Simulated assay, not measured.
Amino acid sequence: MKSILITGASGFVGGAVVEYLLRQYQGKDINLLLLVRAETPLAGLARIKNNLEKFGLTAEQLSSLSETNILVGDLSEPDGFTQDSRLDNITHVINCAAIASFGNNPALWRVNVDGSLAFAKRMAKVTGLQRFIHVGTAMASMPDKDSVFYEDMPDNEHNEDLVQYTASKRAIENLIREHCPTLPFVVARPSIIVGHTQLGCRPSSSIFWVFLMALKLKKFTCQLNDSIDVIPVDYCAMVLVNLCLSATIKHSFYHISCGEERCTPFYAIDEFVAKANNTSAIINDYQQVSYEEMSGSRKQFKDILGPCNDKIILRAIKLYGGFAELNVKFDNQRLLDMGMPRPMPFTTYIDKCVNTTRGLSIPELMMVDFK
């Protein structure tokens, strides 16, 4: 029997991984152990089920999970769960847990690096462990502007991280390789994860609000001809599970991305959001402006976006504008060589993202990324 430990199951990517496993592998010879922050296994189970309900799972599918599937613990305090004897029976790990906030979360390094390294060291002692999939981020490569970043390229040390999140994800990869040489370690770096192909932003509004904000403001720091490498969370989850459970894989590093051919230009996002809202695209009114120009118009934010903290909005513009200006694409040839399908283009499910965020303000939607 395969025994799969999933961290971050109460989050966006981890929840999608559990959703995929429950839909595709329910009744098969697989046991799940889910790491979750909670006071008790019962409370942890409630957190997991509450998250999975956002993914549209039925009561019958959710009923397959019980307290026995719950490992209560927190990566910020790994000693609290790494002594659990059930870890010695784990055959596969999908490590999705991280503080993914682009805000200044004081626990970010403690969780993403220190706690994750302690967890990896513990799992390296498990004799039956066959694979440890670690979820990073493609932006940790610090790609050059207007480039295609290939999977055999080293990270660009001459560039600076736009946020500490990407720095922490790159650091933990290197530390695990250094300190856990026997761990069957495979890094999967997703590009920008936005929405779900069937559920839109019901599971999470992460990142999608940035596009809505730019369209409402009718200006941003990138050009409309620039493109962005977007994948849906359900595609990311499918790839992670397949990387985890495949009998053999050739590489220890993979991009999960849409690749050069399916990157989405910002003008197409404008077009499809307008179509979903039955309004006109802003293409003729859009202005590319500098961050300084955006800062100079901050008094207009509340009139356009509704009640908001203009300092947080400006911070968001600076951070996400920096990523948008990169206009970078991430090669996904290694997945294609495995026979993996290409992800659905962002434009094919933008309408679902629009419909599931309708009526919510930008400040409400953005809080998921500024925890």
Rank of each mutant, 00 (worst) to 15 (best):
P265G: 11
K169C: 03
Q300F: 12
L336Q: 04
V163Q: 11
T7M: 03
S295D: 14
D226V: 08
F119A: 05
D29I: 00
L52V: 06
E173V: 09
G73L: 06
P232N: 04
C353L: 05
L57T: 02
V241A: 06
F12N: 02
G321S: 01
N309I: 03
Q130K: 13
Q26D: 07
I192D: 10
V273M: 00
D84E: 05
S246T: 10
A324G: 13
G103A: 13
T40I: 02
L215C: 00
H158N: 14
S101P: 10
L62V: 02
S10M: 05
G56D: 09
F253C: 09
L87S: 04
C96A: 10
I70P: 03
Q223Y: 15
N332T: 00
G27M: 05
L215R: 10
F211G: 01
V36K: 00
I283K: 14
K275G: 07
C244S: 15
F370E: 07
E261T: 05
N112A: 01
L108S: 05
S63W: 03
G8W: 03
T264N: 06
E53M: 08
I283L: 13
P181Y: 03
N51W: 09
D331M: 00
D337N: 11
V289K: 07
S257C: 03
D144C: 14
S191G: 06
P203M: 01
T348I: 11
E293C: 10
A43C: 08
S10T: 12
V111T: 12
P203N: 03
G359D: 11
V111Q: 10
S147C: 13
V239P: 09
A316M: 08
K145T: 09
D79R: 14
P143K: 07
G339T: 04
S147W: 11
E178F: 13
K302A: 13
Q24A: 12
R342I: 07
A46H: 14
I176T: 11
Q83N: 14
R131F: 13
H196V: 08
R202H: 13
G73H: 08
M366W: 06
K2N: 07
N159T: 08
D285P: 12
N242T: 02
E151W: 09
N225P: 13
A46K: 15
G195M: 00
M142F: 11
D351M: 15
R86E: 02
T182H: 11
A124D: 14
L22T: 01
T347F: 12
K121D: 08
N105F: 01
T248K: 15
I193H: 01
D285F: 14
L215Y: 03
L224G: 08
K216R: 14
N327S: 02
P307L: 04
F301Q: 05
F266K: 00
G115W: 04
V210H: 14
L215K: 09
S361C: 07
W109H: 15
P184V: 00
Y165T: 02
